[in-house]
């Protein structure tokens, strides 16, 4: 069958011109301002601290910030995957509130396995399996039972926090092994191994989420499930997979935290808010205002640099909480307004 039949002239070039672009000029401008503004703000913060605190812009300090952000970054990246696959609606979309508790419990499992006299191999395996298992419970509750992620993971968070108390009797479980010391030590160029770890993990996660078909399908599932279904995608499996991934990330973060703190300590739940802030803030670092892995890394570093800068300038770090709160309100309201305009 011949296909290069010349087509009717009604389909001339004038039809290619945008006829009724849905986003208004104001909306476009606001979106550009939000994206541009966030990069400018990032740069401004770096510049300000470099001028105000001479030590700030040194390789050693930047490595420190990277290393200190590793646990937060890994957790936030896991949460980002869930938000991508579940949609970025804060109430009904994808969210995993159990990540911080999961990390705490996985860390406790790691430290306990070491205490029982097993080596690092079994401990790593136990920690990652614990994380994955908790992720699987979340996936079951959300995908099979149909509970809203916000509630399902809230419940799982409480159960997991309780399990951690049972396991550790609410005490510190010390753990020191060669592997853990290696993780918390300095690597090439005197930068912490954790810093390299964060960058390597981000690279892998970015490759999977931003550059494979699976990643694209996760986005489709979260943004427009009907379209994903119409394209024949296994929507439920993708969502379940996102919770599993976030569980494994929490397990990994658990290992990092055992290394960082030389054992398992209580209070992992305090990480939850910073993790959620980081994952949500990440959307402003993407062209399409969607959650991305690199955006989440940038936002983890932004938070890290803020804390670090405040410390170098001897400003009370309690102020950081306030700044984080402001950022979250700013970002969520800005993206909400933009989305409403598009709807």
């Amino acid at each position: 069958m011949s296909v290069d039949v010349s087509f009717t002239p009604t389909l001339g070039a004038e039809n290619a011109a945008p006829q009724s672009r849905r986003r208004s000029w104001g909306g476009q401008a606001a979106a550009i301002a939000l994206r541009g503004g966030s990069f400018v703000a990032f740069a401004a913060i770096l510049l300000y601290f470099s001028l105000a605190a001479p030590f700030f812009f040194t390789l050693g300090n930047i490595g420190n910030v990277l290393g200190q952000s590793a646990i937060l970054g890994v957790l936030a990246i896991g949460l980002t995957v869930v938000i991508i696959a579940g949609g970025s609606n804060v109430v009904t979309g994808g969210i995993d509130l159990s990540v911080a508790a999961n990390m705490g419990f996985s860390a406790a499992v790691y430290a306990s396995v070491i205490q029982l006299g097993y080596g690092d191999g079994p401990a790593v395996l136990a920690s990652l399996s614990t994380g994955a298992l908790i992720g699987a419970v979340n996936a079951f509750a959300v995908v099979v039972v149909g509970v809203v992620p916000l509630l399902a993971t809230l419940a799982v968070m409480n159960v997991v926090a309780g399990l951690e108390l049972v396991l550790t009797q609410n005490t510190v479980v010390p753990a020191t092994t060669d592997f853990l010391s290696f993780l918390s030590a300095a690597g090439p160029f005197g930068l912490p191994v954790l810093a390299y770890g964060l960058l390597a993990f981000t690279a892998v996660a970015t490759a999977v989420v931003q550059f494979t078909p699976t990643g694209l399908r996760l986005y489709a599932t979260g943004e427009f499930p009907d379209a994903a279904r119409a394209a024949g995608l296994p929507v439920r499996r993708l969502i379940a997979g996102s919770f599993l991934a976030s569980g494994v990330c929490a397990g990994l973060a658990g290992i990092l935290s055992v290394s960082y703190l030389s054992g398992s300590t209580t209070g992992a739940g305090d990480m939850l808010l910073p993790v959620v802030v980081t994952a949500l803030l990440g959307t402003v670092f993407s062209r399409r205002l969607v959650p991305t892995i690199t955006g989440t890394l940038l936002s983890a570093l932004l938070v890290g640099f803020l804390v670090n800068g405040f410390q170098l300038m001897n400003i009370s770090s309690t102020l950081v909480n306030g700044v984080q709160g402001l950022l979250i309100i700013l970002v969520v309201s800005a993206t909400t307004l933009l989305r409403r305009q598009e709807a």
Binding site: Y219, E223, A228
Partner: peptide, 13 residues
């Protein structure tokens, strides 16, 4: 999907 490029929307799946 609203946040996809034309190419991504065409080839999804």
């Amino acid at each position: 999907v609203p946040t996809f490029t034309v190419g991504e929307a065409l080839f999804l799946g």
